[in-house]
Amino acid sequence: MTGLNELHKTVVTLPADTEIHTERIFDAPPEVIWDCFMDPELLKQWLGPDRLEMRVDEFDARPGGKWSYVHIDSDGTEYRFFGEFVELDRPVRAVQTFNFVMEPQPPPSVDELNLIPLENDQTRLVTKTTFESREQRDGMIQAGMEKGMNEGYEKLDSILAGRER
């Protein structure tokens, strides 16, 4: 595992006002990556912010099928997400709608997942998320900032308390 993270940097770009792109290389063939996204048992092992429990309530991985899951805080607060699978072409490309439950409910964003096979059984993962508006996209980034900041503070707390993270 040495140096893996150095080689496998995540590249995040904002190529248009309503889009977020991310790219990342993995040391595994596309089929393996695909299963980590489309098998709920595997998905809940890695998706979402640190330290939040994840519960998958619905996961019907076929075009038109619905998915929904919650991230659960230690105080029991639930953050619910839901959407619908639009296109599933294992192990190449998946398209799904994505909603974070809030009042009033904003329009869904559309998530595209593309898996490009590389030499040596590697895969380039490319995601593209398209929002209704720039406002909505920036709101998403902002929400990430808040969470990230809180996580940062929690880590700082642990350090100050003299514990391992």
Partner: peptide, 15 residues
Amino acid sequence: EFRRRRHEQLNRLEE
């Protein structure tokens, strides 16, 4: 922050 969070998540995917 978004970048950092996404990176953390993909690190876990890698594991």
